[in-house]
Simulated scan of single mutants.
Amino acid sequence: MNASPLRLGLASVVLCLAALPAGAIEIRNQADTVVELFTSQGCSRCPDADRLLAQLGAREDIVALAYHIDYWDYIGWEDTFALPANTELQKGYAESWGKNRIYTPQMVINGQSAVVGSDVAEAERAIEQAAPLLPVTLRINGPDSIVFSAPADQELSAAVVWVVPYRARAEVTIERGENSGQALPYTHIVTSRQAIGMWNPAQGAEITIPLEEVLGPNSDGAAIIVQEKNGTLPGRILGASLFIR
C-alpha cells in the first residue's frame, strides 16, 4: 500500500540498566535513536515494517514505538490498536516538513526524517545518521514512581517532555481487508501519549512520574521523550529513555 488518500490541510552511547529487585521495573537510559513507525493492521505492506520495528526495538540503542493509525479502517478492517491521536501526530510531522500527504508504513527517525517503514537499507541509513543531542536519564523513586532528568543546554531550544506508554507485544488475527486470514505479531504498540512538562534549555528539567497513572492496565512500559516544537507541530527529538515493568 502506498500513499494515503488523505490530504493534509494543514555514535553510540552505553546503555545503562538499573539494578532492581525481581519484579521491579527496568530502566534503559540514553537511547541514541527514537524510531516511530506509523502502521496499520489493514495495510498489506505493513507486516514487513512491523517485523523490522521489532528487530530494531530489540537493540539497546533504540527506542521503538508503533503508532497504529485509523485512516485505512475504511478498506474493511478496523485496526484494533489505532488511535486518532496517532494519525494526528503523523499529520503533524508531515505539516512540519511541508508535506501534504501521509502514508503507511512510515518510519520517523528522531522526529527529523522519514523513510518507507519496510525499507531496511533506508531505515538503517537514517538511524546511522541520527545522533543524540541531550542526555536523558531516569531513576527509581521508591516503589511507585520514577524521576526524569535532563541537564541544561543553551544551544538547544525549549522542548516538551512526553510520556509514551506502550504494550510490548500482541498477536492479532486479521479477519478482513488486505491482510485477511493472517495472524500477525505486533510490538511496541503505543497506547497513549501525554505531555508531562517542559525542558528548559537554561535550567534543564526534573520531573517525578507516577507509574500507575501513566501506564494504566494495558501497558508494559513507556518511553520518555524530549521533543522540540515547530510552532505547534512536532519537531526534532533531542533525547529519550524508557522503562519496562
Rank of each mutant, 00 (worst) to 15 (best):
G117M: 00
Q112K: 14
G142L: 01
N141D: 15
V120T: 13
E122H: 12
I62Y: 00
Q112H: 11
E60W: 02
M107H: 01
I62A: 00
W72V: 02
E95V: 15
Q112T: 15
L133E: 15
A121V: 13
W97L: 11
I140N: 08
G111K: 09
G92M: 09
V116A: 08
R125Q: 14
N86F: 12
P132K: 09
S96D: 10
L89C: 05
W77G: 07
W77D: 07
A126D: 07
R139G: 11
A82D: 12
E88Q: 14
R59S: 02
L133V: 12
A126R: 01
Q129N: 14
Q55P: 06
V63G: 04
I69S: 05
A54K: 07
A54S: 10
W72I: 07
T87P: 09
E122T: 09
Q106N: 13
A126T: 05
I140H: 12
T80S: 14
Q55I: 12
G98M: 15
P143T: 09
L56V: 03
M107E: 00
I69K: 06
T104V: 09
Q106R: 11
I102F: 06
L56G: 03
E78N: 13
I62P: 00
G98P: 11
G111R: 06
A123C: 12
D73C: 09
L134G: 11
A126C: 08
R101S: 14
E88V: 13
V115I: 04
Y67C: 00
D61G: 08
T104F: 00
P105D: 04
G111I: 09
M107L: 13
I102G: 03
A123L: 03
R139K: 12
A58E: 12
A64D: 01
G111D: 03
Y103W: 14
I62C: 01
Y103P: 00
A126N: 06
R101M: 13
A82L: 06
H68G: 02
A64G: 05
A123D: 01
Y93C: 05
G111W: 03
F81E: 05
Q106Y: 06
A126K: 04
L133H: 11
E60C: 05
Y71Q: 07
I109C: 05
V115L: 02
I75W: 06
Q90H: 13
N100D: 15
P132L: 08
V63N: 06
W77P: 11
Y103V: 03
S118F: 11
Y71D: 07
V108P: 00
Y93R: 05
Q55E: 14
R59C: 05
Q112F: 06
G76S: 09
G57D: 02
P105F: 03
A121K: 14
G98V: 14
I102N: 01
A64T: 03
H68D: 02
Y93F: 15
W77I: 09
L134Y: 12
